[in-house]
Nucleic acid binder design. Structure first.
Lengths: 225, 225, 225, 225
DNA sequence: GATGAATGAGGGTTCATTCAT
DNA sequence: CATGAATGAACCCTCATTCAT
């Protein structure tokens, strides 16, 4: 429903052309593809992939049914294109940003969490994740794409931060190096919760994530086995 | 397909009848319903709810297609009946079992985790959860049922344990009272991970849950804000 | 349009059953399949295979669209079943009949021609042949089926007759042994002519085939190289 | 695909213009139409009329899809224009050539057959005939065109030859005058055979046509009714 | 004139649901 | 009660045709 585009701030894959017309056409093309992907996300989220009708996607994108096939070859390809377009860029950007920071491991972890809240949980990208969670097992290659382009990057970044913390003595435990998934598990749960139960049993996501971060820092820095 | 029945150790919803024949018939009826639900779980898990064909369910249950409609009024009702039948009992049982223990909060938490591993993660009940995660959003009442009968019970139990720990001074932090979800978040993540990524990037679930428990105990018991 | 059934007089593939109901059902099944194939022939001949709509076939057969798929797995399979059902039997029957005759080669050839006129040109089977001629190149396996089950049998029979004629001295020429196709070429042409040009330029098919037979007999029996 | 043009030696339907530029444009126009028709024949032969995609025709002709509609008003009109353009000329030419010969009826008949083998069976014109045979019934006017411009001419020529043979006493039989179709029936069969069965059961077309001609001559010249 | 992006009607196929036996 | 043949609505995808550039 929220119709903000999936595209991040830095797309920039528009080729520079000297002739006016082709450049304009290429822009139109990109814009229309974006409209179709946005519409598809809306409809897929609302009905689920299988129940979603391409006709509804087309209507919401303001194009005819057949037009979709000028941009993607099939319904499933539409889902994949949608997943691809909503990820990658931001995750890669934050990885470089955080790694370049001259800061402690804790500060980097907090920076990462801040980014996640601002760029993922606050945006439509969280909807893309939800879509992946509910549809990916049906399309194994979707899971592969997502693992490679998002999960992989995220875990690598978490491991790097954990390694820094351990190397500098900031963290006494290497738990996060071994299981970086533990850092983001509450984020995943929050995502599911808001999708399923928020109406009937609201959860203070911000508070939970703050508490989680505090617990993790205490556990990693504190004494113990 | 693992064909162990969904029914836990406490079925017991067979009505006692004095007249022999009807009782026998009622038993047959229950057995056939159980067969249909089991078959439905198999097929729904294998294909997903929408892609599952009722004909396959019927074949696997050893009945004719039309027979299903003598037990449930529609495909969706079949899913709901399936979800209802596979939960409740075990969770309620463990709640009573754990609360009755004469033990510290930590021991109770460990007991709960042990139960989860043994009775959920190791069985096909985890598949029911996965089915709920991927299909429930499509049927809001499914989410409600699940929240009321499973999530609610689990969180109540967790809060009770956390309260005991705080009250006795065992836990310095009340984090778990406020956000019991944090305790099970890694379990949810493990469930999703094994469903989606286990083949391409195996995760040591046991190790992760052990580590998680250790971190949580250290964080709750340790010094800090 | 002509709604005489494709099935010849000797179907007889009904299994004898002791139990009444199944036998009846099998009969119903055969009858319905026959109705569908007849309807399909009508529609395919009228519109051509590709333009034919399965909905029209169903309507003409008096069944619902989906019912067709209980008998054949696809539109193309419907065409193939149709071709198979309209052939085989009659050709095989005439082969045995003619070969069993105690007659001269000429008499056998005349008997074969008489049969073709009566059992093929005078019936719906000629429509099946026309359908094969216009659609087979699109479905190579259709050509194979037809060649194996009809053409092969016909040419074998013609060669046998020609061989008898040569062996007994009745025919001076072995032309028909080498090219049995020459005997039936006018029949093929007649088929095409009646399909395409009969309205605008009528052809006396009977007269032409009589003349053809006379010419062939004279040429085979007469003196010459 | 053999890309020899359909146009015979006698195109000549270019209007003479006095103004230079329009003449040039008219030539371009004709050339492009020719390219489109040639491409259409290729594609129609390869896929059949209904399955052929106008986009493929356009691509093979080196023009855009819309351009076709500047030359023909519809797909069906394209087929008709194609059939018209590929016939007439050659048949008319051979009619004049053969009739002008100072030769016996047999020699004329052999000359006609030689022409057919060289100018039809050896070229892609045979493909046009095949296209007519498989598609014409769908478009009755196509059959009319073909009958008027090709069949009519051919039969008229055959009748003239047969009449000469009878008049001079060369032929004792008037069979060919009454049914000139008998002379070309094996040619039609050969065309169909090569289209459908050549791969699975090769036929010596040359040998068959030679044998046919020999049989016909013997039958026409020999004694008998 | 030429282009090719856009259109949208059309049809084969699937499958949840019904109901006569 | 049980069956499974029959139904027909629903939907993805194709492609002939149009038209703004």
């Amino acid at each position: 429903m929220t119709s903000q585009s999936l595209q991040g701030s830095a797309v920039a894959n528009r080729q520079v052309r000297t002739r006016r017309a082709p450049a304009r056409r290429e822009e139109d093309r990109q814009a229309k593809l974006r409209a179709i992907l946005d519409a598809a996300l809306d409809v897929f989220l609302e009905k689920g992939f299988t129940e979603a009708r391409l006709e509804d996607v087309a209507a919401r994108a303001g194009v005819a049914k057949g037009t979709i096939y000028l941009y993607v070859p099939s319904k499933q390809a539409l889902l994949e294109a949608l997943i691809r377009s909503g990820i990658g860029g931001p995750i890669g950007a934050v990885e470089q940003h955080v790694l370049a920071l001259d800061a402690s491991a804790e500060e980097k972890l907090r920076a990462l969490f801040a980014f996640l809240r601002k760029e993922i949980l606050g945006t439509r990208r969280v909807d893309v994740v939800r879509l992946v969670l509910t549809e990916a097992w049906r399309f194994p290659q979707l899971a592969e794409i997502y693992h490679r382009e998002v999960i992989g990057t995220g875990l690598r970044l978490l491991r790097a931060i954990a390694a820094q913390g351990v190397a500098t003595g900031e963290f006494r435990s290497d738990a996060l190096m071994r299981f970086p998934q533990l850092a983001i598990a509450p984020g995943v749960l929050a995502l599911l919760w808001t999708s399923f139960f928020q109406r009937i049993d609201p959860l203070d996501v911000e508070g939970m994530l703050d508490t989680h971060l505090a617990l993790v820092m205490r556990a990693l820095k504190g004494p113990g086995p």
